[in-house]
Computed example of a mutant assay.
Amino acid sequence: MQKITVLCVGKLKEKFYLDATAEYAKRLSRYCKLDILELPESRLPEEPSPAQIQQALDAEAAAITAKLPKGGALVALCIEGTPCSSEEMSRKMQQLAVSGKTQLTFLIGGSVGLSENLKRRADWKLSMSPMTFPHHLARVMLLEQIYRAFQIRQGTKYHK
């Protein structure tokens, strides 16, 4: 059974995000061992300087690195990543599993993104869209796409 960790910067507070996350976690429990780890987001002033943003990214990267599961593949969600279709994501996840990388860790940064060091470390840089989404919504979207990837692999009618 594939192990999937979604490592997120920022905590969900809104009930609708929590409910959606719980629903996809329940659905995914049939296909993988899912861990969702939340790390605190660095506090920034209303108009942070580039140095303050970099300091926050560095602090968040250190917290992420400390929680990374050993081995497997690291997937960074970032705007400069490669977009892919649901079918392509399903194939990529399957290819990683077949190649022995049964542990997949998806990184979702906070409101200022992910550090360049983490992006360089990633085995796969994934862009959900060229549009900007709240990172809390990105978590729900990612979980749905992971679920869809398993459904595609199984050949169910979920993916039309």
Rank of each mutant, 00 (worst) to 15 (best):
131 M>N: 11
76 A>D: 00
134 P>T: 15
124 W>E: 09
11 K>L: 05
107 L>K: 06
53 I>F: 01
152 I>V: 15
126 L>W: 05
128 M>L: 14
142 L>Y: 04
16 F>D: 04
30 R>W: 01
84 C>G: 09
146 I>T: 02
97 A>G: 13
151 Q>R: 11
71 G>N: 10
94 Q>F: 04
108 I>E: 00
69 P>C: 05
93 M>T: 07
159 H>E: 02
22 A>Y: 02
143 L>F: 02
127 S>P: 07
3 K>M: 08
3 K>V: 09
56 A>H: 03
78 C>K: 03
91 R>Y: 07
6 V>A: 01
5 T>E: 06
32 C>I: 10
107 L>F: 04
38 E>Y: 02
12 L>P: 03
23 E>V: 05
36 I>A: 09
147 Y>S: 13
7 L>T: 00
70 K>L: 03
154 Q>M: 05
93 M>Y: 02
49 S>E: 14
126 L>E: 06
6 V>E: 00
106 F>H: 10
147 Y>A: 12
101 K>N: 15
139 R>V: 09
99 S>P: 02
159 H>T: 03
41 E>P: 03
114 L>I: 14
72 G>C: 11
124 W>G: 11
9 V>L: 07
143 L>G: 03
40 P>R: 09
100 G>T: 14
130 P>D: 10
10 G>C: 12
102 T>L: 01
111 S>D: 05
76 A>S: 13
147 Y>T: 13
122 A>F: 06
156 T>E: 01
149 A>K: 08
96 L>I: 10
87 E>L: 07
14 E>M: 11
117 N>Q: 06
18 L>E: 09
151 Q>F: 02
101 K>H: 13
149 A>I: 10
57 L>C: 14
22 A>S: 13
53 I>L: 02
47 E>W: 13
12 L>H: 06
4 I>C: 08
132 T>E: 02
157 K>S: 14
42 S>D: 07
146 I>M: 00
91 R>K: 13
155 G>N: 07
2 Q>P: 15
17 Y>H: 15
116 E>N: 09
20 A>Q: 09
109 G>Q: 00
52 Q>C: 04
39 L>D: 07
129 S>V: 08
14 E>W: 12
40 P>N: 09
27 R>S: 04
99 S>A: 14
4 I>L: 11
13 K>E: 14
129 S>K: 06
17 Y>I: 15
54 Q>G: 09
36 I>D: 06
108 I>P: 00
76 A>H: 08
157 K>F: 10
80 E>R: 11
4 I>F: 00
115 S>A: 13
34 L>R: 12
25 A>W: 04
133 F>K: 05
124 W>F: 14
1 M>V: 15
140 V>M: 09
104 L>S: 02
17 Y>A: 12
126 L>H: 10
148 R>E: 08
85 S>W: 04
69 P>G: 07
116 E>I: 03
15 K>P: 14
121 R>T: 12
44 L>V: 11
91 R>S: 11
160 K>M: 05
94 Q>N: 05
29 S>P: 06
83 P>C: 12
91 R>W: 10
134 P>E: 02
117 N>F: 02
7 L>I: 04
101 K>Y: 08
